[in-house]
Design a protein around this nucleic acid. Structure first.
Length: 303
DNA sequence: ACCCAGGGTGACG
DNA sequence: CGTCACCATGGG
């Protein structure tokens, strides 16, 4: 991996196993928006990272982030998790016959390191919801209470501060589609605005940090694990949603419905990067619409 | 019309 | 500890 800041852009070369398009659209982060590609670009997106509006694109041999000042590179290196050896993680997956099936389609998936407050609110919104609608609600929340920014001719909005969300009314949140989650969002924003330190959970043992997050209204086991994995560096947090539930039943339990505690135990067996591996499983499960019959039954049984 | 989506809460055993 | 109705909303 070779990083350099050139003409106001961060250019990352010799970066193996990174698929920006997959990472930006797989549902781990909700603020990535596709934008027009320039010649030679495989994909291009805008996003707000660490409070900075950026345009990120990928070519055959490089990841490019614009703008990026000399002293900002570290922010994006951290966000994109560039210093982690995903080759090693993909080897772990390839070496487990139960997991290997996930790899062909999910190569290049990474776990980005989002802002904890943004993850907290975003994943409260994610409950019993779908990725497209979650993205829409988050976007409207940013337009409602976030700071206007600009990157490469695109107008973007920062994720609102805890204070800005805490100042909203429950009605405003329902008007942007938050539904019954509106009071949960308010409660959490108010608590952070009052000084609760999410960053402290980063250096806490997984279970202790998890227990802390469960004290927020609207945060249950799955949402807590998402916040831990996607924003607080807990690579062994293993969120179990409907897709992971189906995938684990099929890959690990012979399609005999297992309890979540049993799935957690199987996840523990994957090691300290089980959460990152979870992201490959999740991507695979969605890509093949696991558990759903496209047209006719093709289960091989009598028919 | 019904079912689903990166589920959680509160009530009740 | 487990189960279960209910919760807003939009798309298939």
């Amino acid at each position: 991996m070779i990083c350099e800041v050139k003409q106001g852009s961060l250019v990352v070369r010799e970066l193996s196993r990174f698929d920006l398009a997959k990472c930006a659209t797989c549902g781990q982060a909700f603020r990535w928006a596709e934008c027009e590609r320039k010649p030679g670009e495989l994909c291009a997106f805008t996003c707000v990272i660490r409070g900075r509006a950026v345009r990120a694109s990928q070519t055959e041999d490089a990841l490019i982030v614009y703008p990026c000042a000399e002293d900002e590179a570290h922010k994006y290196i951290d966000y994109f998790d560039l210093e982690r050896d995903y080759g090693m993680i993909e080897q772990l997956i390839a070496a487990d016959p139960r997991l290997a099936v996930c790899l062909p389609g999910a190569e290049g998936i990474r776990v980005f390191n989002q802002e904890p407050f943004e993850a907290l609110i975003s994943f409260i919104i994610s409950a019993n919801n779908n990725i497209k609608r979650i993205s829409g609600i988050v976007e409207r929340l940013c337009r409602l209470a976030g700071k206007a920014l600009e990157a490469g001719g695109h107008e973007l909005y920062a994720f609102p501060s805890p204070q800005a969300i805490a100042a909203l009314s429950e009605r405003q949140l329902k008007e942007i589609g938050a539904g019954y989650r509106a009071p949960y969002i308010l409660h959490s924003a108010q608590r952070i605005a009052e000084g609760y330190d999410l960053e402290a959970l980063r250096d806490m043992p997984l279970e202790a940090a998890r227990k802390e997050l469960l004290s927020f209204k609207g945060v249950g086991p799955k949402v807590a694990d998402c916040i831990l994995l996607f924003s607080l560096g807990h690579t062994d947090a293993f969120p179990i949603d409907v897709w992971i539930d189906r995938a684990m039943n099929e890959l690990f339990f012979g399609s005999v419905p297992a309890k979540k505690s049993e799935m957690k135990q199987a996840a523990a067996g994957m090691g300290r990067y089980s959460g990152i591996i979870q992201q490959y499983i999740f991507y695979h499960a969605r890509a093949v619409q696991l558990g759903k019959a496209p047209h006719a039954a093709q289960d091989g049984s009598a028919g």
